[in-house]
Design a binder for these strands. Structure first.
Length: 614
DNA sequence: GTCGGAAGTC
DNA sequence: GACTTCCGAC
């Protein structure tokens, strides 16, 4: 059985520290697992096994019990604990080793990133105090050296908590539970770290500093990996080509028996293909060559890229908006570099300027649609939603390739997309607006010709004053969501039944445009033109009827006139007093009615000219 | 044994 | 947010 000391399977100290659990003041399960893994006394309970980062829970019940003790959950059992572990799957912190019972594998990529939310990326986000140094600017990201003697002086060896294996050995004692005393969530580990740090660096960011001794230069730190030739060259025997299991284009981790040995975090190499769906970054493409570089800039770029891959499981453009210089290659990894637009990504583009943050991009997007995006995106299009699939099936244009090309060409889901491009769902700012967006899309598809898509606006939406582009404006977040799996179906599908409510104004404004608007009172407000037309039809019909009646009337009158020739006078006098159209029961003489119709017609025309609409 | 949804807790 | 609890499905 391997012990952390034997195998070197030990994580950096930050990984064991509860405060390195972002967003949680309590110890997290993966921390606890690491904690157990590093303690020899629990080797019979849980231990590293197999591939790097892989561990097996030898005694599930005991692990559950320990976990329950730590969390003061006496009812804890392996079923529950394993459920918690399974939640790590989605977080890419852990994954299951299939076919091996009780065997899991850490994804160090994720752990690094979780604990290195570092990359400032211009967002102003600070590095957590508990986080180790990160490869930004003057900081030197450091993975644990293989042995203290390789890199560190004896004093450094003693002081640097970065020498994980030695630390781990010394740490492997004491209680696991913090439930009883409540004084420490990581008692013995913190104790150990504290011991070291008492002799070394203290302070709120002691871990950070502790991991990066001031005396350690970048060169000295990475020469261990770079070999005698300095940076960029692996030592003899070191694997040169990218380890598919490694987060690095060329793994800093040697294989078993490699030069660096297992003192590197066991999980560093962990997550292969499924978690590394692409070559870290084309901007690192020089690293794909025959030498590996731990150049901090390269590291930074790598980690930036990987930051995306891990945090954004499906290369959501939402995140790439933060790092627009990152071009995500298509699956054919080796050709990633040639895929790059040379002009946009010259080799000298390594030292990319600070990438604009999402906010600035947002701004940019809103105000400068006419300008081609300076950012080069090469993102896979989101999976087609149902509606999209149906649409593409029925239409000749809008192939999936055009989706991709539209993404790649503009870098933004630009409204300047030519007709024929697939209609792009724009993620709303809120769920509520999502509903609106769906409506907008539906409307535009069904009721509006493409010509009506607003070239000036941000979305494909009918150019209608009631539309109101505000909710349709693409935000960086909104755009990003296009590629989000979880949104794909929801966003693209046609809502079963539009729910009125807060959406009503927008919906009505959009949907009702072709039809008659609804008056505030709820009655249909028939357009004036239509009303006059109806009136005209009525008049025409009435006129025909009246002429028929008139014929009979004449006949009757002729008969009556023979008897009472003066009876018609008063009847004629009633005519002007009654509108012929309002007095259907007693129609005026034809001439009068004709004059009335003419009057109506003239009135209608006049009204049409004077009034625009209802 | 493993998985993941759902609801609940803190 | 990070589990915990329960549970049905495979």
């Amino acid at each position: 059985m391997k012990t952390p000391g034997d195998t070197g399977f030990a994580f950096p100290d930050w990984a064991y520290k509860p405060e390195s659990s972002p967003g949680s003041r309590q110890i997290q399960l993966w921390h606890f697992i690491l904690e157990l893994l590093r303690k020899e006394e629990y080797q019979e309970v849980i231990a590293w096994q197999g591939d790097y980062g892989e561990f097996v829970i030898k005694d599930p019940d005991e692990v559950a019990r320990l976990w329950g003790a730590r969390k003061c959950k006496p009812q804890m059992n392996y079923d529950k604990l394993s459920r918690a572990l399974r939640y790590y799957y989605n977080k890419r912190i852990l994954h299951k080793t299939k076919g091996k019972r009780f065997t899991y594998k850490f994804n160090f990529n994720k752990l690094v990133l979780v604990n290195y939310p570092f990359i400032d990326m211009g967002s102003g986000r600070g590095v957590p105090q508990s986080a180790p140094p990160v490869p930004t600017g003057g900081s030197h990201f450091r993975f644990p050296p293989s042995t203290p003697s390789e890199v560190l002086s004896p004093s450094e060896d003693l002081r640097s908590p970065g020498v994980f294996s030695s630390v781990a050995r010394r740490m492997a004692r004491g209680s696991v539970s913090d439930c009883s005393d409540g004084t420490s969530t990581n008692s013995e580990l913190e104790e150990g770290v504290g011991i070291e740090e008492r002799g070394g660096v203290a302070g709120p960011d002691r871990t950070f500093r502790g991991l990066l001794h001031p005396r350690l230069s970048h060169d000295s730190l990475f020469r261990a990996y770079g070999g005698p030739g300095g940076l960029g060259r692996p030592p003899p025997g070191h694997r040169v080509h990218g380890d598919p299991m490694s987060p690095f284009p060329v793994s800093p981790l040697p294989g078993p028996g490699g030069l660096l040995g297992p003192t590197l975090s066991p999980a560093m190499s962990m997550t292969p293909g499924s978690h590394l769906p692409y070559t870290p970054s084309p901007s690192l493409s020089p690293m794909l060559g025959s030498h590996f570089s731990f150049n901090p800039d390269d590291m930074k770029r790598y980690l930036q890229a990987h930051h995306q891959s891990v945090y954004n499981y499906h290369l959501s453009p939402r995140a790439f908006f933060h790092y627009p210089n990152i071009v995500v290659p298509q699956p054919h990894r080796p050709s990633a570099a040639p895929d790059k637009p040379p002009a946009a990504h010259p080799p000298t583009h390594h030292h990319a300027p600070p990438v604009p943050h999402s906010h600035s991009l947002h701004h940019h997007h809103q105000g400068e649609e006419q300008h081609p995006s300076p950012f080069k995106f090469k993102l896979q299009p989101p999976p087609l939603g149902r509606k999209q699939r149906e649409g593409s099936a029925s239409s000749t244009g809008g192939s999936s390739s055009s989706v991709g090309s539209s993404y790649a060409a503009s870098g933004l889901l630009s409204n300047s997309s030519p007709v024929g491009l697939p209609k792009i769902k724009v993620e709303p700012i809120s769920d509520m607006e999502s509903e609106e967006e769906v409506e907008v899309t539906d409307i535009s598809e069904e009721d509006e010709p493409l010509d009506d898509y607003d070239d000036e606006g941000d979305v494909f939406a009918p150019a209608h004053p009631a539309n109101g582009n505000a909710p349709c404006t693409i935000t960086n977040g909104g755009l990003g969501a296009i590629a989000e799996d979880d949104l794909d179906e929801d966003v693209f599908k046609t809502p079963a039944a539009p729910t009125l409510g807060p959406l009503t104004p927008t919906l009505l404004g959009l949907k009702s445009e072709p039809g008659p608007p609804i008056s505030p009172g709820g009655t249909l407000c028939i357009p004036l033109k239509q009303r006059f037309k109806r009136r005209w039809n009525e008049d025409q019909k009435m006129e025909a009827d009246c002429e028929r009646e008139n014929a009979e009337d004449k006949k009757v009158r002729a008969e009556k006139d023979e008897v009472t020739p003066t009876r018609r006078e008063p009847e004629n006098g009633e005519g002007p007093q009654k509108s012929p159209s309002l007095s259907l029961g007693a129609p005026p003489p034809p001439a009068q009615r004709r004059a009335s119709s003419e009057l109506h017609r003239a009135t209608a025309q006049l009204s049409l000219e004077n009034h625009g609409a209802c």
